[in-house]
Amino acid sequence: MKTGFFSLFNRAGAWILLLFLVTPALIAIPVSLTPKRFLSMPKDELSLRHFEKLFSSPEWMSSFFQSATIGISTSVLATALGTLCAIGLWRVSSKYSEVVRAFLLLPLIIPQIISAMAFYRLWIPMGIIDSYIGLILAHTILATPMVLITVSASLANFDPKLEQASKNLGASNWTTMRRVILPSVKPGVYAGALFAFILSWDEIVVTLFISKFSVYTLPRRMWNGIRENTDPTVAAAAVVLIAITILAFAFSAFMSRRSASDTKA
């Protein structure tokens, strides 16, 4: 189709919309540089005092540490479970396995408030409410479907004949898995691990329900800061989060480009 007036008009509109998607979040940057003690735009001078406060505050630092611990544990667990599950479903490949796959994606789709209720309901009698174990388990259940999706996507491009060839050449199931299947789904595994980490790192709804005092993640502290809506330290924390997001994004773009050029070569 020739590019008509309407298309050009729409393209301009799309660019404006895309900028509208990204720019509002950037407002945290100037606000975090205000020299004042309350949330405001800096007028004449800029100051890094809120970043200083953020990095010297034991509460914020402990939250960073807790979120990182929970995020990394979740990512490791979810990646292991999700990769195994994806390979299993791929090998079974029957009517039943598709039903099971749909079922296993539910934690990702069911509204988080319902998941939060479910975990809250069960974690109390299990005695793991407000504990690392409780949060890691809950986040793992929510994040594993992500890994399942990304690894399944990689498997869709994998030629099953390679697996047969490996077995015909005398490799055991385990060797085939380790030396043939896993290397070829690596991009999906990495992407899944990253998504699982981000999901946990950013998760607030379930966290609000199943943590109280002893575990206080970064989103939880941000949430409180947002609700009080006075302290510019929150803006500094938001800037740090944006920076981390962009780094993670650049990293994953780099990885996927590298794996794309690998497959070409």
């Binding site: 509002p24 979040a25 407002i27 945290a28 950013d202 949430w223 929150v234 938001a238 989060l241």
Partner: peptide, 8 residues
């Protein structure tokens, strides 16, 4: 992050 966006 949804929190960052809501804050903004």
């Amino acid at each position: 992050s949804i929190l960052v966006r809501t804050f903004s």
